[in-house]
Simulated assay, not measured.
Amino acid sequence: MTSHIVQTDRLSYSYGDRPVLHEVSLQVPTGSVFGFLGPNGSGKTTTIRLLLGLIHARGHRIKLFGHEIRRHRLPILRRVGALIETPTLYPHLSGWQNLEIGRLARNAKRGQVEKVLEMVGLTRDASRKVSSYSLGMRQRLGIALALLGDPELLILDEPTNGLDPGGIREIRTLLVGLSQSYGKTILISSHLLAEMEKMVTHVAIINAGYLLFQGSIDHLRADQHDRMSDISNDPSYAIPTLEDIFLNLTNPLI
């Protein structure tokens, strides 16, 4: 398996005459929890739609599992689970029924529904109608749908949007567990920096369509600590938070 499960090469995209992405070269390491971070409107969702082949850029600049998405889209997508913001669910049906519909649509093996319910912690609530689920439970059910077919890569766009602190913690615990216990590579887009800092191993920071940094979270902290120490002329400058780093990097473009 390639060391980078997702690769883009100087990926650019425009909506009509309005540029959205400017030569973005992403490298998502296999096995990582990769935070794709940026404010609303920075190009995160557009990048994800390109990765999934929902929209197309000129040229062949996107590879997943070492293969170009435009030439091998269907085989690639069988190895990918995705959740784009709010999951599409049938509220009058139970959690189990929603997943069974998803299993049949994805042609996943029998027994997958019970497995993903256990993975996301919804086994006890499987028979309840989704209309009675909390928002956090619905998000977990959406992630369960993305897990059908046992994908190697999960792509989640703002999975904690609208959740209260308890729901956000549930999703964070779930995603860390999926990485550590099940070996999933997880690409998460978000603008919630404090929350991402608690779970990611690697980050990419994007603003106004420009990629400002990518690498391990430890590398990012060390690099920015050294820079801020030089600027302040204080070698004992505290290790910056992800929010400090983000504001420092994006301030010239905001």
Rank of each mutant, 00 (worst) to 15 (best):
Q7K: 11
D9M: 10
D9V: 11
D9S: 13
D9A: 06
R10Y: 00
S14E: 02
Y15C: 05
V24N: 05
V24P: 01
Q27F: 06
V33H: 04
G35V: 06
F36D: 12
G41C: 06
K44L: 09
T45R: 10
T47H: 08
I48G: 01
I48E: 05
R49Y: 05
L51V: 08
L52D: 10
A57G: 05
A57P: 07
H60L: 06
H60T: 07
R61K: 12
R61C: 11
K63Y: 01
F65C: 07
H67D: 13
I69K: 12
H72G: 00
H72K: 14
L77D: 13
V80D: 10
T86D: 04
P87Q: 07
P87S: 09
T88Y: 12
P91M: 09
H92V: 00
H92N: 00
G95A: 13
G95T: 08
W96I: 11
Q97L: 06
R103A: 02
A105V: 01
N107R: 14
K109Y: 03
G111M: 15
Q112R: 05
V113C: 12
V116Q: 04
G121V: 07
D125F: 13
K129Y: 00
V130E: 03
S131Y: 03
G142E: 00
A146I: 04
D150I: 04
L153H: 02
L154T: 07
L154Y: 01
I155G: 09
E158H: 13
T160V: 15
N161V: 14
L163P: 06
L163K: 08
D164T: 00
P165Q: 08
G167Q: 10
I168T: 01
R172S: 09
L174I: 13
V176P: 02
G177T: 10
K184W: 04
K184R: 15
T185I: 05
L187Y: 07
H191A: 13
E195C: 07
E195F: 05
M196R: 03
H202Y: 00
H202T: 09
I206D: 09
N207A: 08
A208N: 09
L212P: 02
L212T: 09
D218Y: 01
L220F: 03
Q224M: 15
D226W: 03
M228C: 03
N233Q: 15
D234I: 01
P235A: 14
A238T: 01
A238S: 13
I239D: 01
I239G: 01
T241A: 12
L247M: 15
L247Y: 15
N248F: 07
T250R: 08
N251H: 13
N251Y: 10
